[in-house]
Design a protein around this nucleic acid. Structure first.
Lengths: 214, 214
DNA sequence: GCTTTCAGTGCACGCTCGTACACTCAATAG
DNA sequence: CTATTGAGTGTACGAGCGTGCACTGAAAGC
């Protein structure tokens, strides 16, 4: 019989909490090592359960990794939503987007590190999950670009090509931000400034694209 | 006493050959897994020596990984040399470069896969070695861009920013080429064509950069 | 209130792992 | 010819791994 107000965690709640602990613990380990180098036993140990209890939640570390992709993509999806609520003019969109990018990376380092570390990492299933999500991200951006360039005669092929380039530029910035953190080689501002200029360079290319290729 | 013509492998030659076998075997394993998931024992086994003999060549798998970076960078360096022996006009440079990129990736898949897999992988020393080499690559490209845009009033800061963007675009293409191989999602021609368009878009942006920012 | 469910336990197993140590024996050096 | 060197051997160890299996005990279902 379910109480109207559960004063103490129910069975399902407790399970969910343990599951979340497993995911969180793995995310912490990712800071130093890659998924392939993290054992089921140490994750279970750190989460405070016995190794065999791990199987109540995931059938393997690889499966946990795939779930973690979803989990980690949330900040990225939030980023799109934030960026869309942005300002009207071209240049402002870029400035705004880069700023949001910087903030999201700062606030969700572990998630972004996981995604960049495993994007081309050793576990095929995880790679595939990340690739799928990023393709979604690119197609979202393509839609935005289509809206912005409406009536300017852009083919969907070229729009996607451009979105792809922009995503590549932004992901490169993300990775540099994560690396810079640890090595103090360049500070955040420098990286974001460069990224902003790169996106503006691309936008500039777009503005003369058809006059050069038509 | 060294013979004038060594008919049978000398001691040093034999050692070098074993060392190379260890590197090659590791490169083969990288196709399926990341460095962190490859054990010293299996590398030794596959190379035909006993595990403890591994230490005659490298002090750990991590150290072998760092050496492998050098080894794998050779095709990339060759790429620069090939591209520079290229043609004079702007558009031809891009077409030519992308073609060379495609060929190098096709001919040196394993090396490129190693670099992309470990670029943000779990071993800090390997990450650092790759980052250093790639920074060198970017600065080479910056020099080329400086030569091409000589007298057009480009700051070295903006040149580097642009080179950085171009490298990001090319690396993204490399990674897609490697992924496509296994999944047949897109064929090589499509990816290279897109990459060519992306570089051309950037070049177009460059041609109007100063009129827009000065 | 009795029964069922199931998250978490505890033990045991057969592996593989990195590495220490003493060794062999052919190529090299003097 | 003899002595040295050093790449590769063989054994052995302790530790950690993934996982199978029988279990416990509290919450949920009826």
């Amino acid at each position: 019989m379910p109480e109207t107000v559960a004063r103490i965690a129910s069975r399902a709640e407790r399970k969910e909490r343990t599951r979340q602990r497993l995911l969180d613990v793995t995310l912490e380990f990712i800071e130093k090592r890659s998924l392939a180098g993290i054992s089921l036993r140490e994750v279970a140990r750190e989460a405070g359960i016995v190794p065999t209890a791990f199987y109540r939640h995931f059938e393997s570390m690889d499966a946990l990794g795939v779930e973690l992709v979803d989990e980690s993509m949330r900040p990225l999806r939030q980023m799109i939503r934030d960026a869309r609520r942005g300002s009207p003019t071209h240049q402002d969109i870029i400035k705004n987007t880069v700023e949001i990018l910087g903030r999201q990376v700062r606030e969700h380092k572990a998630e972004f590190r996981f995604l960049s570390r495993e994007r081309y990492g050793g576990i095929a299933a995880v790679r595939r999950a990340i690739a799928t999500e990023l393709r979604l991200f690119t197609s979202e951006l393509t839609v935005d670009l289509a809206r912005i360039t409406a009536g300017a005669g852009w083919s969907s092929y070229d729009l996607e090509m451009t979105a792809d380039l922009m995503v590549a530029a932004m992901l490169a910035a993300v990775m540099e931000l994560l690396e810079a953190e640890a090595r103090h080689a360049e500070d955040e501002r420098t990286i974001l400034d460069r990224s902003e200029r790169q996106l503006r360079l691309i936008a500039l290319g777009m503005s003369v694209w058809h006059s050069a290729t038509d």
